[in-house]
Nucleic acid binder design. Sequence first.
DNA 1: CCACAATACGGAGACACTCTCCGTTTTAGC
DNA 2: GCTAAAACGGAGAGTGTCTCCGTATTGTGG
Lengths: 182, 182
Amino acid sequence: MRADARRNYDKILATARIVFAEKGTDGSLDEVAKRAGVGAGTLYRHFPTREALIDALMKDWADRVSADADAAIATDLPARALLLGWFGHFVEHITLHRGAASKICAAMDDPSSPMFRKCRVMGDANRRVVEHLGARGELRGDVDPANVMRLVSGVASVADMSPEGLDVRPMLEVVVDGIVRP
Amino acid sequence: MRADARRNYDKILATARIVFAEKGTDGSLDEVAKRAGVGAGTLYRHFPTREALIDALMKDWADRVSADADAAIATDLPARALLLGWFGHFVEHITLHRGAASKICAAMDDPSSPMFRKCRVMGDANRRVVEHLGARGELRGDVDPANVMRLVSGVASVADMSPEGLDVRPMLEVVVDGIVRP
DNA sequence: CCACAATACGGAGACACTCTCCGTTTTAGC
DNA sequence: GCTAAAACGGAGAGTGTCTCCGTATTGTGG
């Protein structure tokens, strides 16, 4: 990668972070380009779609989620507390930028999305947690990790759409209670 | 209302139903106008915002949801079956048009939305069901109807975003299990 | 160190969508 | 029928996405 290309790439990413924080992930890409001091062409060459840009913004996001999952497993807490912590982190991560949660939800089932791969990493992380607890016999018999992930993503989406910081904890508690063996 | 106004109003609504079914609720409003054979001005005079149009499309939606709630209560089924049925209907209703679920989620907390009033009707319907079962002592002690509605709306959003007909039943089962007394 | 291919830049402009404004047409009551 | 009020429609301004290609920058082999 040429020096000027790298420079612009980084500048665009940094600016996108700011603009998306201000106006959500639907903010104008032209504005990102303008504020980054590059032409629209440059932005679109580096990031052909909005999704590609969001994906780049979340470069190590999937890895952080994955690490959180392993940390949760390592705590060896009882299922309920462990899941509450894990789901809480999960929601926090995917609602980092307003509007991101629903984009992630959509990418989960869309192999053509640049985020699809990261969603798989996230899905695997969730599966590890769920199966760990399943192996310990603390969950109901018929828990499908994929559905759990969808459900928690749904909670994240709702939280993302409600005007200000909605407390997701009570919703996560319901989900957790629906999963752990009574 | 003048005859020509009424005619156009109905024509726009009918066309919107078609266009939204084809392209989701984000379809072009100009296309709706064009295909309805009216000018853009006419469309925007009748429906100042996209939300107003969607809201009009769902004219008696809130009433149907409300009726479903009362029907569910009348069945006198055990809590689990009753809630599964009610939630299922609920999700079906708000995912009638692709993209509608998330608009409804957003409207739930936005008093300035034309859909806000209908969301309240829907929220009341849900509260009736939840409190009915609560009174029968079949639910956990700390169930907040508002959060239940958010949660189920989240399920609907996720279903709406996933490419094709995702089976929401397993997710609803988790929610129900998280609500009914174990 | 410099020439020159390869690479990247940038912004004008085509296209799409939203929404308004106002001259023209339609309606309904008298 | 006449006329005032109501409604129409589409041109056009504003905004955003995305492409194309003439111009500028880079780094490498001589």
